Amino acid sequence: MASRKRSSAPAAAAPEGVNPKAPCSCGSGRRYKHCHGSGYAPSVTRPFEGLPGEPHWVALRELVPSATAPLRTADGRDVTLASVLPGGSPALVRANGEILLGVQQQTSSDDVSRDLGTALAAALEAPAGAPVDPGPIGGAGSAGPRLQELLDLEAPLEVAVRADFEFWLEGTDAGPAARAGLEQANQAVLPTELLPELGAAYWVRPTAERAHLRWVRPEREEALLDALARLRAAGEPVLLGEGTRYAGAFRAHGLVVPVWDLPADAPAADWTAPAAEFQTRLEAALAVTEPLTADERRARAGLISRQITLR
């Protein structure tokens, strides 16, 4: 995943009665002093909201090393979305006119959708084979369109997970330097597979001894945490079967991503049925609307204590 930086800004004084170390009231999960009190413009908590496949956008931004997906602009132009492009480039246009947009970029602002939209708008205007110059991204000068303004919002997002970055050089006459850079990048790709029947559920094996299932959930955070707490308080395991462990969750771009530790020797497809069974139980818990009981509130607090925020 490409590193992303922001320029510094002076911190804003907390309003009277607001604890700067308390969670920000906007629901981002960050402390006030690191969110609306940080001196930055208020962040967009869910930058991909409204786009088809919102959980997959989050996954490609934060979880998946190599993947592509076809996009279509509102005026009918074809674009290839890529998890990351060579050198962390925001976008490129091949000599044949093919446009690629990288979702993992070197810098970002508090509205990732506008950052990506700025890069895409520049790529749509760039001549074939020429470098794409989107101007400043991730700073105060980033004022281009958002993705929601540029893309066809009726076209589904169909992700193809790649085993390497060979797509970087497809249709090009790459020299030795480009091939060497590609080989170096390929060495960093972790084995990753999408479990398509489960939405944005991605299996990854970071080492020979362990594997994980990272499942970007589409539900709003409060409802999802309540449902998980109801399951745990009722004694139903928040597990995917024998040998698995619920490791916790993290929050990314407004969505919650539960993570399970899995035995590394089982192939990814073996977890589709257990995860589908868990989803059935989760959906039943999501349908409950009564206030949480005392036991459920304690279970919820335990879940939150194991949750971190990436973005």
Rank of each mutant, 00 (worst) to 15 (best):
R220Q: 13
V216E: 00
E222G: 07
V112W: 13
G135A: 10
A163P: 14
A91I: 01
D152K: 00
D111I: 04
N96L: 11
D226K: 01
N186G: 00
L124S: 01
Q104H: 10
A185E: 15
Q106P: 14
E209D: 11
G175P: 15
P145R: 05
H212E: 14
R114L: 03
W168L: 03
D164G: 01
A211R: 08
D133L: 11
G199D: 00
L195H: 09
S89P: 09
N186D: 03
S89T: 12
S142A: 15
G102F: 04
G144T: 02
L225H: 05
R146H: 03
P131W: 08
A211C: 03
L101Q: 11
R94A: 09
L182E: 08
R179E: 11
P176M: 07
Q187A: 13
G135T: 09
L150N: 03
G135C: 12
E221W: 12
G141M: 10
R205K: 06
A200H: 00
L224D: 00
A122S: 04
L116Q: 02
V93E: 05
A208V: 13
A122I: 05
R217L: 10
A188N: 15
D111A: 01
A155W: 04
E197C: 10
L100M: 06
G135S: 12
L100G: 02
E197K: 01
N186M: 08
G117F: 11
E166R: 14
R179V: 09
E125V: 09
D111V: 02
E183G: 13
L190I: 12
E125M: 11
L169F: 08
A91H: 03
Q187C: 06
G117L: 02
I137H: 10
A160V: 10
S108T: 14
R114V: 11
E222N: 04
L151E: 01
A130D: 08
V216L: 03
R205A: 02
V216P: 08
A185P: 14
L225M: 07
V132N: 12
D173V: 06
L100V: 06
Q184I: 14
V132L: 09
V159D: 06
Q105P: 06
P145C: 12
D110R: 15
L224H: 00
L169N: 11
G139D: 15
A122C: 05
E221D: 13
A128S: 04
L153M: 08
E98D: 08
L190W: 11
Q106A: 15
P218A: 06
A163V: 13
D226V: 03
L194C: 08
L101C: 01
A123F: 03
A223R: 14
R114N: 01
A160P: 04
L224A: 01
A130T: 10
D226L: 03
Q187T: 12
L182D: 11
S109F: 00
F167Y: 14
